[in-house]
Amino acid sequence: MATQHSRSAARLMMAPAVTLLLGWMLVPLAMTLYFSFKKYLPLRGGDLGWVGFENYVRFVTSSAFWPSIQTTLVIVGGVLVITTVLGVALALLLDQPMWGQGPVRILVIAPFFVMPTVSALVWKNMFMDPNYGLLADLWRAFGAEPVQWLSQASVPSIIMIVAWQWLPFATLILLTAIQSLDSEQLEAAEMDGAPSPKRFWYIILPHLGRAISVVILIQTIFLLGIFAEIFVTTGGAFGTKTLTYLIYQRVLESQNVGLGSAGGVYAIILANILAIFLMRIVGKNLDN
């Protein structure tokens, strides 16, 4: 329908947005690539020239690299499992007609509006503090020794904090998906003799397949970069050093911009591998 004229007008009007977006992405990417091939130590001599792939080799051969990849995957995986399983459960609950549905839904979504730094601080001080945290009180109430959450169970603690933040997102997407299910399908299944667990398994869950893959895809992309939650709780100690955190340490704590940039490039590669892999799954789900 679009004429030649209106098409070129459309291009012209989109141009500023596209340019801005490209700049936004390309400039940092180009700078990361640029620095990753340099020996660049801001406090120890600055730019010390090109070093080829030395930074890349050093980054992967450092003893912190593989553990950081592992930690990243464990945290991302843990959060994904918790948010999708609980998200489906919560969405099912919220879909039931009940008194005060509106306010309850808003409350459930609330954690998503809390900034990561804030929520991590709240968890760290209000819940997980071994002396005056609520969880410590709870443990003591049962006569047990309070758990030093962030040192003794550091990775699960971080998974818990991040899952708490992302659960509303998963719930929201899954709730809308559940609401889009044609109720006649459930009624048909009921008449076909499927009790509610089977209706869930054969009708609701397949219907949610698409939404679940979208949740997983989007969350993975964001979760690969979690930083604030680790920074304000363990500071990367006790085995909570993710790839992102390692890069941060290389750049800011060791003041080695080149090495950190090489790590950044690895992070991009990791994210892309996961993204392609997930897109395949989502694509397959979107097909039918």
């Binding site: 044609d182 006649e184 399908q185 009624e187 048909a188 299944a189 009921e190 008449m191 054969y202 009708i203």
Partner: peptide
Amino acid sequence: PAKRGLAMVFQSYALY
């Protein structure tokens, strides 16, 4: 419903 021995055809077909 399942115990009544009735089968229903819905307006939207309600196929899975």
